[in-house]
Amino acid sequence: MFDGFTADPTTLLLGAATGLAFGFLLQRGGVTRFRVILGQFLLRDFTVAKVMLTAIVVGAIGIYGMRAAGMDVTMHVKSAALLTNAVGGLIFGVGMAILGYCPGTGVAAIGDGSRHAIAGVLGMLCGAALYAEVHPWLQQRLAGTASYGKATLASTTGLSPWWFIAGLGVAAVIGMMALERYERARRA
């Protein structure tokens, strides 16, 4: 049964190197902490939003930039089945507010010293097993609704992706500057 149980060593090494960097960054960013995640949802600590928005803008510039420069970068756009994306997102948000972590930060939080994150990850494994049982039933009823394939904001609107990247970048810079000013004012 162990035939093909693991991928080739190079793939594993690359995955592990990525995970080491990812875990390191999540810890330094503070997002492996329950109080930072809940602080975001209670609108007191905007660390999560700052990390995510910066990652999205920087990431988008690089990925679309490399493609524009003619590099062979494969996209990994997940299918838009908007009803399941939305309902799944709502369920996910409820779980994340109770646990205080998302899957990646929850696993990393174990390395950061969180004991309750271990119970959270065990719950995640059970959640995955539970979902596997009901997937066909749910898929049949929900996945066909508002289904648009591998759509992006650009492909849906027919606009250049750079309009969205520029818009996001400007909104992020203005939003973050306003947020920093608001946080300084509240501390003072």
């Binding site: 756009v77 997940k78 369920i91």
Partner: peptide, 29 residues
């Protein structure tokens, strides 16, 4: 919380990393 979280992630086809970082930066709907 962990049970609910992953149930939602699998229904949606991804989580905070796969959707909210990797997906949003590709401008995926």
């Amino acid at each position: 919380g962990g049970v609910i979280l992953i149930f939602g992630a699998r229904l949606a086809g991804g989580c905070t990393s796969g959707h909210s970082i990797s997906g949003t930066l590709q401008l995926a709907l």
